[in-house]
């Protein structure tokens, strides 16, 4: 017995989720950040962020379809992290790495925080 492992499968699935997001198909939540609106899939947000996990695992938030983040959250940092969730690529520009790191702290994405720290220390 054995199995055939499709090594590209995880990437192919994530790419399809990103295509669904870009076409606003089956998105089930709108995240409002400082006046900007981002449509996304709760399952991806919960899978990638400790913050969203705690929000959407709370029974009273079962039917939540819109959520406003704390005004201190930078929309550009959030946009970079949302793209990361759907592509595994973290866009790091010197001018935005601090905003990205602070947003990752807020979203409880510790591994991304560590990576931003190392990027800041190395540059």
């Amino acid at each position: 017995d054995g199995c055939i492992q499709f090594t590209r499968h995880a990437g192919d699935v994530l790419l399809n989720f990103n295509r669904l997001r870009s076409r606003d198909i089956l998105t089930d939540v709108t995240i409002q950040v400082d006046g900007q609106h981002f449509h996304a899939h709760k399952a991806i947000l919960v899978a990638c962020s400790g913050f969203f996990y705690s929000v959407f695992m709370d029974p009273k938030n079962t039917n939540l379809s819109a959520i406003s983040l704390d005004p201190k959250v930078d929309p550009k940092g959030f946009s970079i992290l949302l793209d990361f969730m759907y592509t595994s690529c973290l866009d790091l520009k010197d001018s935005l790495v601090l905003a990205t790191m602070n947003t990752a702290i807020y979203l409880q994405m510790e591994h991304v925080v560590d990576t931003c720290h190392r990027f800041i220390n190395s540059s």
Binding site: G2, Q5, F6, T7, H9, D12, R19
Partner: peptide
Amino acid sequence: YEGVNTIKEMGRSIHEIPRQD
């Protein structure tokens, strides 16, 4: 899933959702 008899398939595994219809 690293079984003894795992064969690795490098090709695409599922359909690709188009950028638009």
